[in-house]
């Protein structure tokens, strides 16, 4: 219980570090020195001190959206399995709630983007909602596979009962989850987090009009989302529980760090996919999860 609570606090504190790691990896690949690892903390601090500018077209959804998105993420943090595959709250069926909480977050993000009436943000929102159409079933198929494998219906129940013997299935599922992880967090083959002026961007363009504390919440939520979905991937890739809390904690944290490293490497080596190709990538993720399920059923 204590260790799980610690994990949640750790997630809340350390999540902004992940974008820092990713950016540092990218910088190293590009031969630059790069921003400091703690850059996002500085940004958040700066943004929180600032005031905000609102578009005259907006209503209160504009600023409720980011707040609600953050609150919902905090809720999903309660059920997501972290070190040792444990979570604070665990009940059969939390899988469904978990996925749907992300749906709520997306709903609010889209509504608050559309609130500005900007065609750029409309474009981003439209893409965000399109990718969910493919990502959500894929995520569910992955979870179904794991639920069948472990005969358990809660996320942490599933994640705490893996073993190395499930190799093939875990490999496929974690590959599928990694694809979903990249898409949901608007990382590179799907979305380029570096720019927001190009017409091809998704997440960054949706927050074009947000400023000050609202933008800080959005940045913070994005890094938290990276952490939460990252723990799903890490838990599936490293199904190892020594039983020793400190060891497991270290394994989990290094897993998360390694995942950020991997994201950085992917971002350095790959170009962004054409937008028309993104559904294809997500369907490939779906196919991987499906293969895992078929293996599991057979």
């Amino acid at each position: 219980m204590k260790s799980v609570l610690l994990n949640i606090i750790l997630a809340l504190i350390a999540a902004p570090l992940l974008p820092g790691i990713i950016n540092r990896v990218k910088a190293v690949f590009a031969g630059r020195k790069g921003q400091p690892l703690l850059q996002l903390y500085y940004d958040l601090h700066k943004l929180l001190k600032k005031s905000a500018v609102f578009s005259s077209a907006t209503t209160f959804f504009f600023w409720v959206g980011p707040l609600a998105g953050f609150a919902v993420l905090a809720g999903s943090l309660l059920v997501v399995p972290q070190a040792q595959g444990k979570s604070l709250v665990q009940f059969p069926g939390d899988i469904i709630l978990f996925v749907y909480l992300f749906g709520v977050m997306r709903f609010f993000a889209v509504v608050s983007a559309m609130d500005t009436g900007s065609s750029f943000e409309g474009m981003g929102a439209s893409r965000e909602i399109q990718f969910a159409v493919f990502a959500e079933p894929a995520l569910f198929v992955g979870l179904v596979t794991l639920a069948r494998k472990t005969a358990n219906l809660s996320l942490s129940g599933i994640y705490s009962s893996f073993s190395w013997h499930d190799g093939t299935i875990l490999m496929l599922v974690s590959a599928a989850f990694f694809i979903i992880f990249l898409a949901e967090n608007s990382r590179l083959p799907v979305d380029d987090p570096n720019t927001h002026l190009e017409l091809t961007m998704i997440h960054e363009v949706m927050v074009l009009d947000h400023s000050g504390p609202d933008l800080a919440i959005i940045f913070y939520s994005a890094s938290l989302k990276l952490w939460i979905l990252g723990s799903l991937v890490v838990g599936a890739i490293i199904p190892m529980h020594t039983g020793n809390i400190i060891f497991d904690e270290l394994i989990f944290l290094s897993g998360i760090a390694a995942l950020s490293l991997a994201v950085g490497i992917v971002e350095s080596c790959m170009a962004r996919l054409k937008l028309l190709k993104v559904p294809q990538l997500l369907i490939a993720g779906f196919a991987l999860a499906m293969l895992a399920l078929i293996f599991q059923i057979m």
Binding site: G167, L172, A284, F295
Partner: peptide
């Protein structure tokens, strides 16, 4: 175990071949 991984890889290459 090893054979399963190889077989999985075979399947993934199948998907890769039709996807690219």
């Amino acid at each position: 175990m090893l054979i399963n991984i190889l077989i999985t890889f075979l399947l993934i290459t199948n998907i890769g071949a039709v996807a690219s």
